[in-house]
Structure formats: C-alpha cells, structure tokens
C-alpha cells in the first residue's frame, strides 16, 4: 500500500540503508541485509541511484511480505520506503 508524498516526507525510518552508487543487484542485497535490524512494523528507508530500484524494491517487498510505501525523488538519488511486516 503506497502512501502520499507528504506522508512519506513525514516518516521517520528505523533504519536507513544507503545503496547509492551501487547497481543491480546492489540495492536489493543492501535491503536484504538492512531489514534484519528493523523491528516488525518498523520503517526502512533505502537510498539508491539505480533507477531500476523503483521497480525492484516494490517487487522485493512483495516477495518478502513487506509493505512498500513509496518513493521520493531527491536531487540525484531516490528515497524508497517500506514497512517490515514480519
């Protein structure tokens, strides 16, 4: 379930994973590693520069059973948010 831009901006992530500068499959590998320390119900934010991450992280989230919340575009990189569901 995606949420609006303003809601995303207001989110405080429990964990920020910086995968900027890495290419596929770097952001997904980073997400896999980062999610371990996020509490269930907590929010993980992934920073990425590979534009494919816009498709890949939602797919990863769905497969892993987490809620992809949406993304924000910053200057030169992306911020992607998901909620750990289990």
């Amino acid at each position: 379930m995606t949420v609006g831009t303003d809601d995303l901006k207001a989110l405080t992530a429990d964990q920020v994973v910086d995968a900027r500068g890495t290419s596929c499959p770097g952001p997904i590998l980073a997400a896999k590693k980062g999610i371990r320390t996020v509490p269930v119900g907590g929010v993980m934010e992934v920073l990425a520069t590979d534009s494919g991450t816009l498709k890949d992280l939602p797919a990863w989230s769905a497969k892993m059973g987490h809620d992809f919340l949406g993304s924000l575009e910053e200057a030169g990189y992306l911020r992607l948010f998901l909620r750990k569901m289990k």
Binding site: P25, I28, L29, K63, M64
Partner: peptide, 11 residues
C-alpha cells in the same frame, strides 16, 4: 550470478 544473488536476496 546476478540472478542467483537477486533470488537469494528474495529468500
């Protein structure tokens, strides 16, 4: 190996 790593990252 890209596919293998991606799949492993998806559990």
């Amino acid at each position: 190996f890209v596919i293998a790593n991606g799949a492993a990252a998806m559990d």
